[in-house]
Design a protein around this nucleic acid. Sequence first.
DNA 1: AATTGATTTAGAATGATTTTAAAGTAATGT
DNA 2: ACATTACTTTAAAATCATTCTAAATCAATT
Lengths: 136, 136
Amino acid sequence: MLNNAEISELLKKARLRPTRQRIFVASLLFGSEHIHVSAESLHHKIKQLGQKIALATVYNCLHHFHKAGLLKKVNAVNDVIMFDTNLSYHHHFLNVDTGELTDIDEATVSIAELPKLPDGFETESMELTIRVKPQS
Amino acid sequence: MLNNAEISELLKKARLRPTRQRIFVASLLFGSEHIHVSAESLHHKIKQLGQKIALATVYNCLHHFHKAGLLKKVNAVNDVIMFDTNLSYHHHFLNVDTGELTDIDEATVSIAELPKLPDGFETESMELTIRVKPQS
DNA sequence: AATTGATTTAGAATGATTTTAAAGTAATGT
DNA sequence: ACATTACTTTAAAATCATTCTAAATCAATT
């Protein structure tokens, strides 16, 4: 858990102005467990905590944090962009019913062989998505 | 290339009424190379061919074809649902600049080790997405 | 404290997709 | 063939996530 001064510092390091809203949003994202959020889900959580931040601001925050390298954008499936506080290269289980994402421990996956890239291209990132559903 | 009777047969087998519109849409999708389409891109192609089918009908077609197992839904990235006529288990290169998808030959990828699934869940599908960008 | 430039915000706009409800068409029984 | 029924198509409205706009606010700098 980070205090406001620490969060302020973190934002400054990322060249983001530590505004009231950004500090609050950052406090929900950083400093504890890695989490996955969408703008909508985060905004909802904020409202539940009795705070009032415009949805557009949440979008702005998430995108700024992403640009600054504080968040990873996760391949959305149900039209909803998810952001991941876990920046390291990793894969996901995707619950196809709920859209919920769960990190896969990198150590439990190994990709033995990869195709060669199209000419003139380089890899930006690589992600394995295992779509799962409740056993029928 | 399939003729209309063959396409009609294909639709009937999938328990879909072989209507004029579906036959036309199916003729663009099946019978030659595997392709990736969005509702919008397919509708555009149809208009270019001088035909007139409502965009909503294209959406309906694609979803019906998908439900019937004739198309695979591909993890969209730029908000656009892509459908793939290649039903077999396979992976994609994703051009992050354009959203364009390219199939990866399955033989060139091998995943050596996989994590165990969460309890009570089963795998629906699994997809490796290699996001690529023009070499900088 | 005043200026400047970035940020926040409500609300409008956008773009993909879905829904609605009416009109059209295919399949089925007669 | 003909009527009935059920499914399809369609334009237009609705919806949902997201982005834009323009005015108000705020943080950093002079």
